[in-house]
Design a protein around this nucleic acid. Sequence first.
DNA 1: CATACTTGAACGAACGATCGTTCACTGTAT
DNA 2: ATACAGTGAACGATCGTTCGTTCAAGTATG
Lengths: 208, 208
Amino acid sequence: MSNQEVAPESKRDKALAKRRRKILEAAVMCFLENGYHQTGVRDIATRAGVSLGNLYNHFPSKHDVLVEIAGLERDELAPFLKILAKTSPAPKVLDKFVTAYAKYLAAPENVILSIEITSEAIRKPDIADLFLENRDLLTSSLTSVLSRGAADGDLRPLSDPSDTAQLILELIEGSAARSMLSGVPMRKILGGVRDFISAAVSPPDTAV
Amino acid sequence: MSNQEVAPESKRDKALAKRRRKILEAAVMCFLENGYHQTGVRDIATRAGVSLGNLYNHFPSKHDVLVEIAGLERDELAPFLKILAKTSPAPKVLDKFVTAYAKYLAAPENVILSIEITSEAIRKPDIADLFLENRDLLTSSLTSVLSRGAADGDLRPLSDPSDTAQLILELIEGSAARSMLSGVPMRKILGGVRDFISAAVSPPDTAV
DNA sequence: CATACTTGAACGAACGATCGTTCACTGTAT
DNA sequence: ATACAGTGAACGATCGTTCGTTCAAGTATG
């Protein structure tokens, strides 16, 4: 109660940060519903309950709104990094991760936003950088798990664990995209994915 | 020389078909360079050397241009279906296919167009249908190969060969997308992909 | 064979809507 | 009194689409 000075946020700044979050939330909803390029800045402003001009007091351009959202995606990865940091046997950690990540991507929003960002990343290098940066968080952690598993003899020796980590992510993400487009629920696909990955990384002498 | 009537194409129709192709080619170029939504109908018309109004004599809307392009993608798959139809041992056919498909997707155009279509498919059911239809051509052929391999004992028994086929495609396509975004050439990735797939489908008693 | 008639490809101006962005202004908290 | 979040009208550009028109090729008529 004594020193409110320590926190650099006055009431004003607090309200400001709130507005910003509100705008970002609204933008995410719009991008999900209609896609980035089909969403107008007015749509975002209206949805956020903010005037058009004021939105530009918070973000210099529409593009920067997407950049911020792409950056925010990083926070979503925390739970998965936590799983991958566990010291249980590698195959167990791997399977836990696969299941958790697949469950996360079972929500269409997460897949759609990812596709939206990816397709914008094709022609916007700064977004591509953010995308790859986020992805590197997952791959590097996953690589560690795979290396440890190989060292312990729990997994087969991988010529390039980093490459393998990438492939595992691509399997899950690709499956999620297909699930969304085809309407087949992720729950029906997950078993096959786990099985496939397990077969790909298990040591050669593993019993079936 | 005698009966020109047999061919249903007059000079007029011939020229018409040519114009159509020209427009579609131009549209593909535009979509590749700038993306579907960032491309104006005028851009397509100009690039095709056709007037704006005339483009609408050939296609009822911009959307229909993309629909036609998505449909045309089907033809690109012929070489791969041919490979998959071969009767060599399943592992060999599979590896040939993986290599060929990866090489095809090493060209950024093919990946970009695919992403462009996918992201439009999210909100346009008719494009999603075309996309899934084309993909089904590959998966069903690939499924046959996998089933045959399992029956011959060349591949491990798969609980659902069709699911596995999907996953293999997703591996290759996902790798290609990552290659494009990260700048790592497909040639550096292919080895890992082949290795991963081979490990995932080989019978359990296979020597390393 | 020459003629008139029909057809529809080709054209580009114009339409109304919407785009991302700017700006002069107002209200309010410090 | 000053700074600045907040406003919405306005800007110029561009969007996808429609329109009336032109004109050359195809068909029917003489």
